[in-house]
Amino acid sequence: MADTHSHTADAHSGDHGHGHSGFSHPMPIWMLLTVFFALLGLTFLTVFQAQFDLGNMEIVLSLLIATIKAGLVIAFFMHLLWDKPLNAIAILSSLIFVSLFLGFTLMDAQGYNERLIMDPNGDLLERSQPKGSLVKKSE
């Protein structure tokens, strides 16, 4: 990836020579195609790995591949690598806030999952021992 990066810088300085004003940075075609085929390859990879039963690793692997793909799209297609840092900060902050949202909500869900009513017709008093509280009572 670092290799690609340096090439791009060259490509851009080349474009500047053609008299474009300061803010237009046309992407070289070879780079667009490279990124596209990389994305396609990763898609095949993720479909392929889904054939195997990898247990919990499957989620991790799928999401890892998805994140690499998303990174490629954002960095190259969306041109973020050469963009103003503020734009990168904006999109990264959105991801941070999404993780905050998911994180707190999940943290809560872990705590109450076991207090959910599984058998609505059961006698309430049978369930009078709380299980889910993360604060365990002293033994």
Binding site: F104, R115, G132
Partner: peptide, 10 residues
Amino acid sequence: GMADVTTIVF
């Protein structure tokens, strides 16, 4: 009825 830990953190 949030989890106790979440409550205290918040």
